[in-house]
Nucleic acid binder design. Structure first.
Lengths: 268, 268
DNA sequence: CGGTTGTTTGACGCAGTTCAAGCGGAGTGG
DNA sequence: CCACTCCGCTTGAACTGCGTCAAACAACCG
């Protein structure tokens, strides 16, 4: 549960009360094995999950049998807040690696949100950031070549992983098959294979044994046309590796509003 | 402002107090002309808008000059809640038609959210639904042919337009160029032209004078592989035209939570 | 050591792009 | 009322990024 709190505290400060309440709400921990679905399209889940460890994917299955992965929830992410506010899953969530998930019932989460509006605002904010990531994926699939698209995915995951301190030696654990990648970027597995080979041949990355290593961050960013602004990562984060500098477009991230009393000057 | 309240009331009941507060918060109305940007990438807006009338598009511009439209805010939508919780726009919002927009300052909106947590929950819920639409767009761009993709866009807009009562005679106002459409579906303008011709030749639609008419809803749905579940439209809505039946997969939409006291049975 | 799962390679085909030219309607000015 | 212009739509032809099919190869595992 520490990682969830750590991630929330990157953007805001939590009181002891709030931390306790989070611990209490996400009390139960469950394990999921690779390939296992946590939640399926059409279901009406009664709980919300927070990923502690491992790797998940959200995906939608099409009638013809294809699959499109629409996001990768990483450790520290509270996923399917979605199901808290809506009724029915319009997509599935599966485990790509062995994953530990802290679980909160809708009822408990509702109580939490009512008692701690500032926490509710933080969760709301997370939902908005997730939306920003979705938008970038639309751009990715709609307007970038297979090569740039794949590079972009790897860049994004690096920044998000770094944000929760899960990068090491310029790389991160990424235990996926090339088919998984192809479902995420909307290409055929064969083409993904060729793109990866090119990225390797150019000395940008290596991907082996479920681990992605980035050898030339600037090169990869250039190949991807990647700008991290949409991720809203913390401003001056302490990245455990050599790439910290690229993260700072030096934007100040807004504190979560509500009960902070801060307000901007009007406009309309 | 009526349309905003009407849309919110499709999913929930608003007290007189809440309606008054909404009116007061979104007091100022501004006009925008076609082609004009309401908000630009990189900006730090101090207000949130609600579209009363007209048509907007959210888009991201790429360095190479391409553009990807990531959504079409329709009348009744409160857009850029985004900017309320985050700092800086990672995308732009432009007007496609002459548009009337009700404007609320961040400060006023914050006060509203604090005073009426149920309204905050409704807005949060809207953000989550928007996320669901983004996901479907990822699927659309990633895994559907140009033909299906274009048909899908038209289906989605029909359902969303019908939701706020803006369809008439099986069609709706859609004052866009083929270039706009191509930027939304991630195709070249030339190919969009050919796809539209095919859709017309098959008797599915016509698109002329800024108005889209659907002649064969079932055919269009089939061409698109469209299922409306992700839109979370009201269950038994009174559509003003002949296509109401398709909208109901008969799912019960969750009431907005918070202060309703309802809770589901646990699971984890 | 055989089975299974994931990666790699090659050949071929097609959906969609690009380039380039022509067309039509709406607005404008003479 | 016509001529000119602009903008968006349409068409054709050549090209290409990526998909499909199919087979070989590599790694892991019981």
């Amino acid at each position: 549960m520490e990682i969830i709190i750590r991630k929330l505290e990157l953007r805001s400060t939590l009181s002891a009360d709030e931390k306790d309440a989070l611990h209490a709400t996400f009390g139960v921990v469950r394990m999921f094995e690779p390939g296992q679905d946590l939640l399926s399209q059409g279901e009406r889940p009664a709980f919300v999950g927070a990923l502690l460890d491992g790797l998940l994917c959200r995906y939608k299955a099409l009638p013809a049998g294809e699959r499109q992965i629409v996001s990768f929830p990483l450790p520290g992410d509270i996923f399917d807040l979605h199901s808290f506010l809506l009724d029915r899953m319009d997509h599935s969530v599966g485990a790509l690696a062995r994953s530990r998930v802290a679980v909160a019932s809708h009822a408990a989460l509702q109580a939490l949100a009512e008692a701690y509006p500032r926490l509710a605002a933080l969760l709301w904010r997370d939902a908005v950031i997730e939306g920003a990531i979705f938008r970038e994926w639309i751009v990715n699939c709609g307007r970038r070549t297979g090569y740039a698209r794949t590079a972009h995915l790897l860049c994004e995951l690096f920044v998000r992983m770094a944000d929760v301190g899960l990068t090491r030696e310029g790389g991160y654990g990424f235990p996926v098959t090339q088919v998984d990648i192809s479902d995420a970027v909307g290409l055929s597995p064969v083409h993904v294979n060729r793109v990866l080979q090119q990225l390797r041949a150019e000395g940008l990355i290596s991907l082996r044994g479920g681990r992605l290593t980035i050898h030339d961050w600037d090169g990869l960013v250039k190949a991807a046309g990647f700008t991290p602004d949409y991720l809203n990562v913390a401003e001056n984060q302490s990245a455990p590796d050599g790439f910290a500098f690229v993260l700072g477009t030096k934007q100040t991230n807004a504190q979560a509003r509500f009960a902070t009393g801060d307000a901007r000057d009007g406009h309309g």
